[in-house]
Design a binder for these strands. Structure first.
Length: 430
RNA sequence: UCCUCAGUAGCUCAGUUGGAAGAGCGCCUGACUGUUAAUCAGGAUGUCGUAGGUUCGAGCCCUGCCUGAGGAGCCA
């Protein structure tokens, strides 16, 4: 039998339709029942009054519990008394399964309980909206790079060694040898961009860091473009254009979901070019103006990032970091060897870093020297050094953290709600 | 890894100075033909995280452990 989705009911006013869904909530008064039905595309109130539907169907209204699966038939009406403005006058109810008592009631729950029931929590309105926004962000990212002429390349998840030596990697057994889950596809992207010009990879990354904050998950998704014949400014332009595109797309297609999660969209509407571009040294000056104690040379922590980002009404680029807080592959400007041509983009409203990237070192001798300084095994990086031996060109790229971007766009407090099944420190169930 | 806080009914929590184990929601029974987290009346529901200790007596005080949350560092 043909059926309609709740998001489309406005097209069926006055018509008989069949909807397949689940009972979201139930209210009753005397001989009338109000069943709130959800189907993944929306929620509609349906009404069953005694005498107006067969008695056996009416009796089912009493029996069905929250989240029972059911197929209902009725006529769509416009009705201002119904939340959502449309209502279904029930004619027939077919119960697929009576749900056991559902753990997540419409009342308040603690985060620990909700995380234990994440597989069910996803059915609630807010989580539903966040996941739809997530899907839109991912589609926007893909559309952007495809339209800009980037080639999608899939970099490996299993890698023989670290990209950034200092961070902790997940180790696994690779037929008797050690292998690691990737932290980034960047080094491989540097190879593929020399083959294809403009490339991007999009996939999961893993950090075995014992991070326990609202901005960290162990397994997260990032998109990493890499551009041949690009300098720092080109990388910044690309990141800015991408962010503007994502925000505009979500505002265009997912406004209902932003309202559903009560996101104030005014700050998102500010997100247009140009973004402010400041250097690390200027950022330190901002901190000093705001009476924040900070010494030039250190890395910004969460409180510093918040102060800096709150000084602007849209994302801000920060460039020219002290070289010693950035990885070995980052190019240093010839005029000042103490700096690195890196860029971080901080999201506004205190949401912190969503983009990290920069221009890569393209000179063979300098790169060899850096490997030695960082005590990295040259043997493992021979292929990477080859990229500087055979037609080296200036190039660069960045990584954009998908979950951090979603967390910011949704205005939610914690990154764990931005991915269906977050992997957190000490939490891998469900 | 470090700092802070928490763990009592299915869920959210209260529990006074150490002296009889509580409320709301959910669930069960009943009333109500327009509810909006419906409302109203009645009912059932406990290894007080765990192992010790102090005490005539511990949900409450002390110690260890477990689990969770918030934050730091690290980072996207």
């Amino acid at each position: 039998m043909d059926y309609v989705y709740i998001k489309d009911v406005s097209k069926y006013v006055g018509k008989e339709v069949t909807i397949k869904g689940w009972l979201y909530n139930k209210r009753s008064s005397g001989k009338i029942y109000f069943l709130l039905l959800r189907d993944g595309t929306g929620i509609i109130q349906s009404v069953a009054a005694k005498g107006e539907i067969p008695d056996e169907d009416y009796e089912l209204c009493d029996k069905i519990t929250q989240e029972s699966s059911m197929i209902v038939t009725g006529v769509i009406r416009e009705d201002s008394r119904s939340p959502g403005g449309y209502e279904l006058s029930l004619q027939h109810i077919e119960v697929v399964q009576i749900s056991e008592p559902y753990p997540i009631t419409p009342k308040k729950h603690g985060i620990s309980f909700l995380m234990d029931n994440r597989h069910l929590w996803l059915r609630s309105k807010k989580q539903n909206a966040i996941l739809r926004i997530r899907a839109e962000v991912i589609n926007a990212v893909r559309d952007f790079f495809n339209k800009e002429g980037f080639i999608l390349v899939d970099t490996p998840i299993l890698t023989p060694c670290s990209v950034e030596g200092t961070t902790t990697l997940f180790e696994t057994d690779y037929f008797g040898r050690k292998a690691y889950l990737t932290q980034s596809g960047q080094l491989y992207n540097e190879a593929t961009c020399m083959a294809l010009g403009k490339v991007y990879c999009f996939g999961p990354a893993f950090r075995a860091e014992k991070s326990k904050t609202r901005r960290h998950i162990i397994e997260f998704w990032q998109v990493e473009p890499e551009i041949a014949y690009a300098e720092l400014k080109d990388v910044m332009d690309c990141a800015e254009k991408l962010i503007v595109y994502i925000v505009a797309r979500v505002l265009e297609k997912r406004k209902d979901d932003l309202f559903a999660i009560e996101r104030d969209i005014q700050p998102l509407e500010n997100v247009t070019s140009p973004f402010p571009r400041i250097t690390y040294t200027e950022a330190v000056k901002i901190l000093h103006q705001k009476d924040e104690h900070f010494e030039w040379g250190g890395d910004f922590g969460a409180p510093q990032e918040t102060i800096i980002s709150e000084s602007f009404d849209r994302p801000v680029h920060i460039t020219h970091f002290p070289a010693r807080i950035k990885p070995f592959y980052m190019k240093r400007p010839p005029e000042d060897e103490k700096l690195a041509l890196g860029v971080d983009v901080l999201a506004p409203e205190g949401y912190g870093e969503i983009v990290g990237g920069g221009q890569r070192e393209d000179n063979l001798e300098i790169l060899e020297k850096r490997l030695k300084e960082d005590n990295l095994p040259k043997k493992d990086f021979e292929w990477y050094l080859d990229l500087r031996r055979y037609g080296s060109v200036p190039h660069g790229g960045f990584g954009l953290g998908i979950e951090r971007t979603i967390t910011w766009l949704c205005g939610i407090q914690h990154i764990r709600e931005s991915i269906p099944f977050p992997r957190l420190l000490d939490r891998i169930y469900p």
